[in-house]
Design a protein around this nucleic acid. Structure first.
Lengths: 225, 225
DNA sequence: GAGTTACGCTACGGCTCGTAGCGTAAGGGT
DNA sequence: ACCCTTACGCTACGAGCCGTAGCGTAACTC
């Protein structure tokens, strides 16, 4: 089982892997989850159907890997100077990622199927979720060093809060795109970031100005740079 | 097509409808979306497969209706006395709804499929989303009357904010349950409500501390009843 | 070269799909 | 009561995809 156990024999074609995953994404966009057939994927990828079955046991696992590859390409947690800017950038990045027709569709379908398959759920978690969640932890740590967030003594409470923020960011963006079916444009990203940082009571309707929103987008409170 | 056009002939059995929708939910829990077959649903419901096809053109539409029926049973926007209590109650209610294995699974799968089917997306929207969204509008209106939220002159901005809050509430709860796979328990509901109302800077770790802006809603610590 | 593993190809039983055809049940119109 | 209309249950069917097995060949290690 160890990696060295596979030193002998003909190695698996790495190009076949890439072709299959790419074909999976392409087929997903054209056909959708329900009509996606593994035979079709194999044909698009130019490999035999049996080759595909030798590597992935089910449609779900194949799609998870296909999507995870896209997520991995867009993993970054750059420092944008402030908590507000970091959150806003993460929202934009995640939105752009999920706006790809292949990504959102596949993710939703896989998550639905993972409800009945514990191993699949673990696969999703390790391949996608945990990696994204790390970005939240990093961003919060940076904000704490900047003094934008209070120090937290209790590590367990800190983890709870990180999970909460992650669910809030990822879930809201996902819902915006998948359910409400509206784009994650810059204005929405800013509004949402304001909501996340300052809450409904402080961020609504342009914040301080109850008389009307300030279109010039004057930075709301003192928090930003 | 008018309702009066169907006055003649044998009427459709309302009981068959209920049996089919119930059987769909049951099968969904046991088998999941992928393995759910219409033939199986028909058998469980005690109706002929052809009867099922006469009413629903596809698996998606059937499941949408099956889930929408559950959502309809739990639509309420009771006044809990404060914006905080209203939001918290909505989170709990939505969480309980989506915690049912049939509901969450089905919703995710249907949403995934709706990416490729505009008519299906409309069906989901009118059957589920819009009705839930109305609750947000009602709650915000009540909060405005209480003075918990500022008045909003611009109806377009108000609608934008309502959509944002809806995406935040529904999306975060959905993500918590489907992706993070953790329960919506009372503590989480309270933490999330705090986040929504007072923001990351004000709600974290129970302190209005540090550098964050002081939320004008000073009732936060005493908020939990 | 011998051994090992992956690949492409073909073929197959099994299952589900969605539809068609038929006879029957349950209402409305006169 | 009688027809008309529509829905129902049942059976059967072609079509498509699934997932596997078997075979010969290709690629790489020792």
């Amino acid at each position: 089982m160890s990696p060295s156990a596979r030193r002998t024999g003909r190695p698996r074609s790495a190009e076949a892997d890439r072709a299959i995953l790419g074909a999976t994404r392409a087929a997903l966009v054209e056909l959708g989850w329900a009509k996606l057939t593994l035979g079709d994927v194999a044909a698009r990828a130019g490999v035999a159907k049996t080759t595909l079955y030798r590597r992935w046991a089910s449609k779900c696992e194949l799609v998870v890997d296909a999507v995870a590859a896209v997520f991995d390409e867009h993993l970054e947690a750059g420092d944008h100077g402030s908590l507000h800017a970091d959150v806003e950038a993460a929202v934009i990045r995640l939105g752009a990622l999920l706006e790809r027709p292949e990504t959102g569709t596949a993710l939703m379908a896989v998550l639905a199927e993972a409800m009945h398959d514990e191993s699949l759920r673990c696969r999703v978690r390790s391949a996608i979720v945990d990696r994204q969640k790390r970005l939240v932890t990093i961003g919060r740590e940076r904000a704490r060093l900047r003094g934008e967030l209070p120090r937290e003594e209790d590590p367990e409470a800190s983890a709870r809060n990180a999970d909460l923020v992650f669910d809030a960011v990822a879930g809201t963006v996902l819902h915006r795109l998948m359910v409400s079916a509206e784009p994650v444009d810059p204005r929405w990203a800013r509004d949402f970031t304001d909501l996340l940082l300052y809450g409904m009571t402080g961020a609504d309707s342009g914040g301080a100005a109850a008389a009307g929103p300030a279109p010039d987008g004057a930075q709301k409170p003192a928090g930003s740079v």
